[in-house]
Amino acid sequence: MLAIETKQLSKSFWKNKVVDNIDLQVEKGEILGFLGRNGAGKSTFINMLTGIIQPSSGSYALLGVQGPNDSIKKKIGVMPDYSSLYGSMTAINHLHYLADVSGKPVSRQHCMEVLKLVGLEEHANKKAGKFSFGMKKKLAIAQAIIHDPQLIFLDEPTSGLDAESVIHIHLLIQQLHQQGKTIFMTSHNLDEVEKICSRIAIMKDGRIKKSGTMDELRAYYQSTITVTIKHSPIRPADLSTMQQWLEQAGTQLDIKENHFTIQVESEQKIAEIIRALGTYKIDIYRVDVEEPSLEEIFLEE
């Protein structure tokens, strides 16, 4: 069963189309990373799915239930993009209250367990108004999971957190994934998305430009594979012939004394280059292959 399915989902503010006919399917148990620059429409998309704003057109279904539907809210957890908390309420009371609002009351012991998961157990009785930005983020994540939802929306869960907290949250997300939860997260941190998401969607100007697993995205953008080959000296007589051949095999050729760098379209081309070097009796000492990072794919989009 699909956890999220959208059909031609759009949102316009006046004449400005912020989300433009998005068709997206997220399988149950996936961690989908939603990437895009500021203003790409990521948060608007999440806000539509979670009932914060209404779509202008199109439809969506969460966990098989056509939205908007209040009955599904018990099964979803949401960490909104800008998390302002109830300043006069303690961390534990936050969780207790919001679980009650969800219609899934929890014990104070369970609240403590969730606070421990996000690393706030020592601040359980501290008022949220006195929390640092990072602590507020953690509490916002805790409230999203307090009622044991099946589908979790996290809007930039680690932005503004220190490195230790980021690792902590990554582990938590992976733990939730192992429990079978579906996680839909947006992020500006490309490494983070690459590391923990099972699938990625890249959004630009309100549309999804490309989605797939990291390998699928790399395959799609395979023209940017960069190969650096360190080799034994080339005989002067062979140099120009070899250079001509390499220029046909790839692009961005840069020949130095004992190594050259070239960009090729596919891994097959790398094999061809290695075979060609063999025919010129050139020994290969080292081959470095640089696949496009998510950052490069992202920037290309």
Partner: peptide, 13 residues
């Protein structure tokens, strides 16, 4: 104004 309403509208009707 403080956007805490988002915690409520995503949880209940």
């Amino acid at each position: 104004h403080e956007r805490t309403i988002r915690f409520l509208v995503t949880r209940t009707s």
